[in-house]
Nucleic acid binder design. Structure first.
Ligand code: SF4
Length: 540
RNA sequence: GGCGGC
DNA sequence: GCCGCCAACATA
């Protein structure tokens, strides 16, 4: 795997198609020879992301429970491929027989090249941990099988020759000679199907699994397998190749990462989720000690309710754990803090290792540290509102889930004036929950400007901005210093002079007011949360 | 909470 | 009973 990376732009960008055709002779290729192309760093990165988008599609298809290569599966995958702008790969997967024998379109050859290179690039990113390689191999094999399954008879033949598989399809007369054997011993195919299928004569040692399962006809040391079984033979070859490649890549990784840019890219790759990514908050880590504060000043009602529920009940049902847990991640609570937070609360009602056993994995998973390593974004309002309130415990969006009288009393208990309540209830009664939420925001921040809420984390950030924790695009060293200072003051519940430097007047007002309110509301917190705990049976 | 494995 | 794995998706 030696890529020669050239930062210098090349004059002859366009490589000759003729040579490419011979280099990448087939839509489906065994990834056995590491490419020795010169490649620019931009393309390197581009290819990496492209491959990632490709493999994620197979990932999602599997996750939806669609059976590999079933019609539903294909329909989904094809749709996603074109939606993701990967139509060229779609062609590799579906273009077969009919037009394959004639002249190839140049674009297809280029795609083969991208296919080949991008695979090897991703090896570098996915060789570094068990979890990653397992995922990578799984998706690659699904992709491979899809491509292979689309091949026509002649193409399969061509593929086998190109890759030194010495199998040939039986001629009609050969097939005729052993047709009784085939009918009798070929698993999973009807007689009429067998008439149509191509069969291959292979040394039985290559298909021991089929032989052992008595799934194919066996004669004189040769097994006779149909096209479908061929996928598994060829596939294991491909898989071996990839597995070995990953091992090899692991050894070469330091070499490749000598370039700082490459190193950073490769390490970040599996986290750099394609499309928009709001999964990692840009903020300075939010300490869990400040959550009580924040729940009162900056969290939307749905999250505030969750938080208080957890603090008083020391437990919350699954839906709430997802909703609030992801939200916390979104506002900048670190994984470690998050675990600490849940553990501290939950362990008041259950022993600690019971907690560890049943909840810790999920928290890791939500942070993208387990399994497929997907870093999930926090729930949006739509999602939360759609979720119907579970009878037992958590609530989705309080404006929707709570009935009007309990909602109103909840609001007044949060010290909102009766008239303020009415303003909110107006929207609630019309089913405009997000407007109600926006109204709540205005009232609690005494802001004049209308705000449309469609994501709890937006609500939070909006609130933080208004309170003086404004984030800078480029966190210069002094800006972030100022911010962390504000941060600490927020924890203590009041502002000091230095944090107000450089703000204009009405911002000062707003800050002063909201800080004051935060301070006031904090005073009640300790006794409010200090309840006598009742040990009711925990049911998730 | 669902699915899956022993 | 133990365990692993999943879900999501706003924003300027
Ligand atoms: S509107 Fe959105 S943010 Fe506001 S409470 Fe409902 S779900 Fe939470």
């Amino acid at each position: 795997m030696d890529f020669h990376l050239k930062k210098r732009a090349r004059n002859e960008i366009k490589v000759e198609v003729v040579s490419l055709e011979t280099k990448y002779p087939h839509n489906v290729m065994i990834y056995n020879y590491p490419p020795i192309d010169d490649i620019q760093i931009e393309e390197f990165e581009d290819l990496a992301l492209e491959r990632l988008r490709l493999l994620r599609i197979f990932d999602h298809a599997g996750a939806k429970g669609l059976r590999l290569l079933s019609d539903d599966w294909k329909e989904y995958v094809n749709a996603e491929l074109s939606r993701e702008g990967l139509r060229n790969y779609l062609r590799l997967c579906t273009t077969s027989g009919a037009n394959a024998t004639g002249a190839k379109h140049e674009a297809d050859i280029q795609t083969r090249r991208r296919d080949y290179l991008s695979h090897f690039i991703l090896r570098l990113a996915y060789c570094r941990s068990e979890d990653l390689t397992r995922w990578f191999i799984g998706r690659e094999m699904e992709y491979f099988k899809y491509k292979f399954s689309a091949l026509s008879g002649p193409e399969i033949k061509q593929f086998l020759e190109a890759n030194n598989f010495h199998f040939q399809p039986l001629t009609e007369s050969q097939k005729d000679e052993i047709k009784d054997g085939l009918y009798e011993s070929t698993a999973g195919q009807s007689v009429t199907k067998i008439e149509l299928l191509d069969f291959y004569k292979v040394p039985f040692t290559q298909v021991l699994d089929l032989v052992r399962g008595r799934r194919c006809y066996l004669n004189a040391g040769y097994a006779y397998v149909n096209t479908h079984d061929l996928v598994s033979i060829v596939g294991t070859k491909q898989q071996d190749e990839i597995e070995q490649g990953l091992q090899a890549a692991k050894l070469l990784i330091d070499d490749v990462e000598a370039d700082e840019r490459i190193a950073r890219m490769l390490k970040a790759l599996h986290t750099s989720y394609t499309g928009k990514d709001y999964t990692v908050s840009r903020e300075i880590a939010v300490p869990i000690e400040s959550l009580d504060q924040l729940s009162k000043t900056s969290m939307p009602l749905c999250m505030r309710v969750c938080h208080e529920h957890i603090r008083t009940q020391h437990h919350i049902k699954h839906g709430g754990r997802m909703q609030y847990g992801l939200f916390l991640k979104g506002i900048g609570v670190t994984l470690e803090d998050s675990i600490r937070f849940w553990r501290d609360e939950f362990s008041k009602k259950m022993d600690v290792d019971k907690f560890t056993r049943s909840y810790e994995y999920n928290i890791h998973h939500n942070y993208g540290k387990k399994g497929s390593m997907v870093n999930y974004s926090p729930y949006s309002c739509l999602k939360i509102i759609k979720e119907m309130a579970a009878p037992g415990d958590c609530h989705g969006c309080p404006y929707k889930a709570l009935d009007q009288t309990t909602l109103k009393s909840k609001l007044t208990s949060y010290s909102l004036s009766p008239s303020a309540c009415e303003e909110i209830m107006y929207f609630v009664s019309r089913g405009h929950y997000q407007f109600a939420c926006g109204k709540y925001f205005m009232l609690t921040h005494n802001s004049q400007t209308e705000v449309a809420i469609n994501h709890p984390n937006t609500y939070f950030e909006e609130s933080q901005n208004l309170m003086g924790n404004r984030q800078k695009r480029n966190p210069s060293s002094q800006a972030s210093q100022a911010k962390s200072k504000i941060h600490q003051n927020l924890i203590k519940g009041h502002a000091d002079r230095s944090m107000l430097m450089g703000q204009d007047d009405d911002e000062l007002w707003r800050i002063a007011e909201s800080q004051e309110r935060a301070y006031q509301s904090q005073k009640g917190i300790s006794e409010a949360f200090d309840d006598d705990l009742d040990l009711t049976e925990i049911v998730d």
